[in-house]
Amino acid sequence: MAWSRRRRAFAGFCRQFARSRTGMFGLIFLAIVIIVAILAPVIAPAWMLDATRLIDAPRFAPPSWEHPLGTDHLGREIWVRMVWGAQVSLVVGFAATAVSMLIGTIVGIAAGHFTGWTGGLLMRIIDFFLVLPSLILAIVLSSVLERGVWTIVIAIGLTSWAGTARVVRSQTLSVESRDYIERSRVLGAGHWHIIVKHLLPGVLPLVLANTTLTVGSAIIAESTLSFLGLGDTTMQSWGSVLKNSMEYSAATAGYWWYVLVPGVAIVLVVLAFTLVGRAVENIVNPTLRSR
């Protein structure tokens, strides 16, 4: 019965989401980007990134029929670097968001459920991470730890969970005030039963909506760290393309495509995640849905 109710609720969610034009536009765009990233070895073979096999390729060639998005300082096609960079940017975005959501959900539920010094201590920890500049802390962690994709994932995930925890805590307090929670306590339910059976299902829709919004922020953070030279130099990412364009002063030297292409790609993907997140939030948030 419970699974049947959940299937009906999911089907209703899909129907409401399908009626959102902006949400569907963002979802379709993200699906295309994800498919392109998965098929990167097929669309753009790895040898197209090997500078030793592109000795005769023109450097800084502007966009044309032969070079659709132009070439970089080594003669590599910008579109090839963008296709391969989508893999790293999306993996970091999703993985860092998963780490952030996991920590934020656990800490937020605990801070809202437990009272006394336990809840107070957790709230002080959340407040500390909220006022701490997350980007600066991520830069410090990326500098201290060994450089790599998973280092960036850890750095972003460990510094971006506080906002989620604050939202989850407020939702937990709302759920805690409902009558069925009090009846569960009277019937002898323990903390684990209340958290798993009642609080977690109550906050999951809000966490889902917040997740889609956080992925965009994680992609921006990854691009920033790669732009600052703290990413994995052996792998392509949109941030590393921007870093290379800065090293060769592409913006002032007239190589506008070198800066514009990765910048527009980041903006469009983040916008798509935002559109999907807003559509999900309008569905799962009763206040917004009533409007």
Rank of each mutant, 00 (worst) to 15 (best):
H113I: 00
V140T: 13
M101I: 14
I38G: 08
A51D: 07
V270W: 04
R5T: 12
E146S: 14
L27P: 00
C14Y: 11
A2T: 02
E146Y: 11
F10G: 13
N282R: 11
S245V: 04
G26M: 03
A221M: 09
I32C: 14
M123Q: 15
S20F: 05
L204C: 04
G231E: 09
A46E: 11
A2V: 03
L275P: 01
T252G: 04
I126L: 05
L141E: 00
W79S: 05
I125G: 03
L260S: 11
V153R: 04
G23R: 01
S100P: 04
S245R: 06
T151Y: 00
A61G: 07
L260W: 09
Y248I: 08
G93T: 02
L173M: 12
L204Y: 07
V42G: 01
T214H: 13
W238Y: 08
F60D: 04
L54K: 07
V42K: 06
F29V: 14
G254P: 04
S237G: 08
V261Q: 06
S217N: 10
A18T: 12
G277K: 03
P63S: 02
A265Y: 00
A31N: 06
L39S: 11
V88H: 05
R19V: 00
T115F: 10
D72M: 02
L200S: 01
A272H: 03
S20N: 12
A253M: 13
G157I: 04
L213N: 06
A165T: 08
V203T: 07
F10L: 15
H198N: 12
G112T: 05
S240K: 10
F128E: 05
I43P: 00
W47A: 11
R183C: 11
V167E: 00
W117T: 13
V186F: 07
V107G: 01
R185K: 14
L49S: 11
L199D: 00
A9N: 11
D72L: 03
A165L: 10
G75D: 10
A272K: 03
A57E: 09
N244F: 13
V149E: 09
P63I: 01
L102A: 11
F227Y: 15
A279W: 08
H67R: 05
W150P: 02
F25E: 10
L135Y: 09
L200I: 04
A2G: 05
P41S: 13
L208F: 13
A251Y: 12
I181Y: 03
L242I: 08
S142T: 15
I194K: 05
D127N: 15
S237F: 07
I126H: 01
F114L: 12
G163S: 10
W257V: 02
I195Y: 10
A11K: 13
L275M: 15
S217L: 11
I152L: 09
L230D: 02
W161R: 08
Y258N: 07
L145R: 14
V215D: 03
R7W: 15
